[in-house]
């Protein structure tokens, strides 16, 4: 039997690594990939608590499913924004998006 702490440590590690990527990267697409890592860590956390501590074991799984769905929607929308930024500024680096209106 795997202890619950192992899954919690894994999800904490994934979230922290994703946070590092979000803070340190400059390319918008790489920031988006790091956000995906953070969301995966959160979803593991939900699923682990649901499987171990909830006798029903269902609500957490549903939340993990919704996290995956919302992440897919977010990727689609964010990549549209990245394409728009690239068309306006000829680069996908977030340093270039330094004005609110142009």
């Amino acid at each position: 039997m795997i202890p619950l702490e192992n899954f919690l440590i894994l999800s904490g590690f994934l979230f922290a690594v994703g946070l590092y990527g979000v803070l340190a990267r400059r390319s918008a697409i790489l920031i988006l990939m790091s956000v995906e890592l953070m969301l995966a860590g959160v979803a593991i956390n939900f699923a682990a608590f649901a499987a171990y501590l909830d006798a029903d074991g269902f609500s957490g799984m549903i939340f993990a499913l919704f996290v995956i769905t919302v992440a897919a929607a977010e990727v689609g929308l964010a990549l549209g924004i990245v394409l728009r930024l690239f068309r306006e500024r000829r680069t996908s680096y977030v340093d270039a998006a330094n004005t609110l209106k142009w």
């Binding site: 795997i2 899954f7 894994l10 979803a43 593991i44 699923a47 682990a48 649901a50 499987a51 074991g57 799984m61 993990a64 499913l65 995956i68």
Partner: peptide, 11 residues
């Protein structure tokens, strides 16, 4: 693989 270990094959 972690989801499989957590007994949620659908996820």
């Amino acid at each position: 693989a972690m989801y499989l270990l957590l007994a949620s094959e659908f996820l």
